[in-house]
Write a protein that binds this DNA or RNA. Sequence first.
DNA 1: GCCGTTTTCGGCCCGACTGTTTTCAGTCG
Length: 569
Amino acid sequence: MKNLEISRIFHSIAQILEIKGENIFRIRAYERAALALEGIDNIEDYANEDKLTDIPGIGQDLAAKIKEYLSSGKISYFEDLKEEIPEGILELLKVPSIGPKTAKLLYEKLKIKNISMLEKFAKEGKLLGLEGVKEKTVENILKGIAIVKRGSERLDIASACEIADRFIKELNSLKEVKRIEVAGSLRRMKETVKDIDILAISGKPQKVMDAFCGCGEVKEITAKGITKSSVLSKDGTQVDLRVVKADSFGAALMYFTGSKSHNIKLRTLAVRKGWKINEYGVFSVKTKKCLASKTEEEIYDLLGMRYIEPELREDTGEIEAALKNKLPKLIQLNDIKGDLHVHSNYSDGKNTIAEIAQACKSKGYEYVAVSDHSEALKVAGGLSLSDLKRKKNEIDKLNKKMKNFVIFYGSEIEIDSSGNLDYNNAILQEFDFVIAAIHSGFKQSKEQLTRRIVKACRNPNVDIIAHPTGRLWGTRDSYELDFEEVFKAAKDTNTALEINGFPNRLDLADTLIRAAKEKGVKFAIDTDSHMTEHLDYMKFGVAMARRGWLQKEDVVNTLSLKQILKFKK
DNA sequence: GCCGTTTTCGGCCCGACTGTTTTCAGTCG
């Protein structure tokens, strides 16, 4: 992903400039641009159409640097900067409690160039002579190094939800807590999160803070104040709690939900109107009077815009859309009428088809497609032709017994290395739903992988492409695809692209969903369940769809039983 | 370095907590 490579370089440039003590606004411009680029998956399209400066935060200068990187793989300005400040010093900034000023001090006074040198110096007491450094600072640096060493992996959304729930449950039992909510990137439902933010209402913040820091889940307290504290949970996740009064809950929730760039843009808009936004409310600069604070709705309303759902708050056009009253009406969990990608014990799933059907029915669904692996995927118990026959018979029998619910006979079919499907067309025609997927040959070229998926779309029996980019969080990166080609093929052949709700997949990614939607592609939100408990992952799939600005109409499994029969090929 | 209902210059979001100071700079979100 070129956009992420450039984003990282801009971020590094900002850090080097900060160490050099350059103009803070120039530094912010690089940081802002780095953030903006994270959300642009088709940066080459912007460059080719000469539209780079359409991206907020990208002007003439940065556009030229992006073009330079796309054509040469380098940004000469960055190469020059690295001559001045060794790149290794940026490593020091990863240590919590070390920022640019400290990094500069460590490099200039002691020639410390990396974390292992820093650890050695700290343990030998050699940092103590430095200006403003005493025992406590050294202690914090060593703690910080321990945190970096433990690894900075981001938490998957499901684990983060579990940790947050445990804290919230414990705090909610206090009579001093009037209300408590998750905020931060978890409320925005980002695929992975770095830390967990929790916001509470209470008139007795000190009591709440004491309870929070004393939670059974807490391993270490990193900061404890009257209204704000940070702890590390037993599994090493940072959890922040902020306590405010009921009057400022809306403003605090907004501030604490972010994203940072969303907040900055709102605050900038407010400044132009002679207002100031902080976590306590919107205030008139002149009269100091509070104009709105209790709910998020009244704040957005005051700013002259529609309420913006948390999943959209990334400063990728949602504020402009809200001002023009052009926000989409986002899909909701209860719009979903069925799950089209579920594994049974015929392949590598745990439950019987009857159990799956019952669980789906009790969720209020009208249908489920039991789509086990195809024969080639032996490791996952892919079904032979005789298995298929047995499975079809069982489904037919169950369907005769079930009322107001239908089990579809489905399969998740292997796309082989040249784009052919595992079963022949005569067998494929038998299925109610065919989901095609790549599970091997990830290292092929972008062209080969694209051709495989496009070929699968063109097969008249294929209804859905499962987990289209194959990424597994923390294990495997996406394989490379020409998305323009894939989206076009999906649109032209009326093949839905899957949004896979399984927490370590969540694939397609939100930015790609949005790009595909603009090309007119339809989607299926599935769970890829391997046991009935996994059916709950639908909420994560729907969250990704919402982050991709999808409406009910964009998603095929919001269709009623009658309607979806018309969709499938 | 970006940006514009204060438009080509002169602004640029805002506050809590910590450690080391004795009023504040640095870090973080």
